[in-house]
């Protein structure tokens, strides 16, 4: 629109509140309530994960800050890796008062479907510096092999 009607902002507009209400309701419809990157059985809080694949193995890294070996339970059932665990409170004694609390505690569960061709029998896991690394080697037959064909 090239020319708009000049509107003095100081004059009282009886419809201003209705405009605000309309935009609020429009916002409500646009609001996306679904969570991103979470599955059916995931809780609100899930540890962040990296999955890296190369020719020989697949490495899965979970961010498990402050968790012990006993708190984590790993299982693989037909190509789906499930991690369950309990995150305990970082502070041990509860005699004081919190100024600020940003950390969460509680149970979590997360399932990941693994890429094809992994050897589920040879999984190794390691917990270090707050990271849980899971190494799954690939099956010999699914590795990329270079075959040279002699031409006669």
């Amino acid at each position: 629109m090239a020319i708009t009607k000049w509107k003095n902002k100081n004059t009282f507009d009886p419809w201003a509140d209705f405009d605000a209400l309309q935009s609020e309701i429009n916002k409500l419809f646009n609001y996306d309530r679904s969570q991103r990157q979470t599955g059916l059985f995931d809780r609100n809080f899930t540890p962040a994960v990296d999955v890296v694949e190369n020719d020989n193995e697949c490495t899965i890294t979970f961010e498990m800050t402050g968790m012990n070996k006993d708190d984590i339970e790993l299982s693989v059932v037909s190509n789906v890796l499930t991690i369950k665990g309990v995150k305990k409170s970082n502070t041990e004694n509860k005699n004081g008062r919190y100024y600020r609390k940003e950390s969460w505690e509680g149970n979590f569960q997360r399932s990941l479907s693994l890429p094809q061709g992994l050897d589920n029998e040879k999984i190794s896991a390691q917990l270090e510096n707050g990271f849980l690394s899971i190494y799954i080697p690939k099956k010999e037959e699914s590795k990329n092999k270079q075959i040279t064909i002699e031409v006669k």
Partner: peptide, 22 residues
């Protein structure tokens, strides 16, 4: 970092979650 601050009579205790920091 995710930070909890907490105080008791003796001290103020801060716990920060820093994964990957040694």
């Amino acid at each position: 970092a995710v930070c909890d601050i907490y105080h008791n009579e003796e001290s103020v205790v801060m716990t920060l979650e820093m994964p990957g920091v040694t």
